[in-house]
C-alpha cells in the first residue's frame, strides 16, 4: 500500500525552481533513500513534502488525502514528522523537555511513548535532565529523532541524519534508523552517504539537478554500474 506519494513536484525559492517535476513514492513500512549530488534538491523535496515550502506544481498525497500546501503544524498532526539537518534540537532545554516538546500536541498521557523512546535510545534515558546543547553530535541526532518520534508518526522524514558524524557514530545512527523502521515507521531519508543509505533502503531514488534520474530497489541501485561510478565512489 502506498502511504505517501509526491507527484510532479516543481518547487523552489523566489523565482528559481530547484525541483523540476520530481516524484517519489513510499509504501507502508518502507525505508526510501534519496541520494544524489549536492544541490540536487534532496532536502528541498523533504521540505516541500513537510509543507515548509509550497510547491508551484504537483501534489503531495498522504494515504489518498491531498496535503499539498498544508502548513507543517497541520501535517505533523496527520502523522508525518520531520527531523531537519541542522538546528534540530532545543539546545537550552533538557533531553526530557526536548522529547516533551515533540509530544506538545498530544493531549493524552504519553509516558508510555516516552519509555519506548528511552528503550530505543538508552543513552538518552541516562541523561534526561542534561541540557541537550551539551551533547555530542551523535547524541544530538538521537534527541532529534526521539523528539520526532514522540507523536508516533506514520512517516518519518530524516534530512542527512549522519551529517558531520564520525563513521562509528554514523553506523550507530543507521542501526537506530533500522530499529525505528522495524517498529513499523515508514521513512524517507536524504543522505550524502549513498552506500549506507541504499544498503538499508527498500527503495532508492537518485536525484540530480532537481530531476528524477533513476529509481529502483536499494539492492539494484547498489549494483547499478552508473550509480556506482557516480555516487558510490567506483
Amino acid at each position: 500500500m502506498i502511504i505517501l506519494e509526491a507527484t510532479v513536484i516543481t518547487a523552489g525559492y523566489s523565482k528559481l525552481d530547484i525541483l523540476k517535476e520530481v516524484g517519489i513514492r513510499v509504501r507502508d513500512g518502507e525505508i526510501v533513500s534519496i541520494i544524489g549530488p549536492n544541490g540536487a534538491g534532496k532536502s528541498t523535496l523533504l521540505k516541500t513534502i513537510f509543507g515548509l515550502l509550497k510547491p508551484r506544481h504537483g501534489r503531495v498525497m498522504l494515504q489518498n488525502r491531498d496535503i499539498t500546501g498544508w502548513s507543517p503544524d497541520k501535517i505533523v498532526k496527520e502523522g508525518i514528522s520531520y527531523v531537519p539537518q541542522v538546528d534540530n534540537i532545543f539546545t537550552s532545554l533538557t533531553i526530557e523537555e526536548n522529547l516533551e516538546m515533540g509530544a506538545f500536541i498530544r493531549r493524552d498521557d504519553f509516558s508510555g511513548r516516552l519509555a519506548e523512546i528511552y528503550d530505543l535510545f538508552p543513552m538518552l534515558a541516562e541523561r534526561k535532565k542534561q541540557k541537550a546543547g551539551q551533547l555530542s553530535g551523535g547524541q544530538r541526532q538521537m534527541v532529534a529523532m526521539g523528539r520526532a518520534l514522540m507523536l508516533d508518526p506514520q512517516v518519518l522524514l530524516l534530512d542527512e541524519p549522519s551529517a558531520g558524524l564520525a563513521p562509528n557514530l554514523a553506523a550507530m545512527i543507521f542501526d537506530k534508523i533500522k530499529a525505528i523502521n522495524k517498529t513499523g515507521v515508514s521513512m524517507i531519508i536524504v543522505e550524502q552517504n549513498a552506500r549506507e543509505a541504499l544498503k538499508m533502503a527498500h527503495h532508492g531514488y537518485v536525484l540530480a539537478m532537481g530531476k528524477n534520474v533513476l529509481d529502483d530497489s536499494g539492492k539494484a541501485l547498489l549494483t547499478n554500474k552508473e550509480v556506482g561510478k557516480l555516487y558510490l565512489g567506483g
Binding site: 513537510f50 534540537i89 532545543f90 537550552s92 516538546m101
Partner: peptide, 17 residues
C-alpha cells in the same frame, strides 16, 4: 516549556507542531 522551546528555536517549535 513551550515558551522556552520557541525562544530557543522557533522553526523547530513549528516543526514539532
Amino acid at each position: 516549556k513551550a515558551m522556552r522551546a520557541t525562544s530557543d528555536n522557533i522553526e523547530l517549535a513549528r516543526v514539532s507542531g
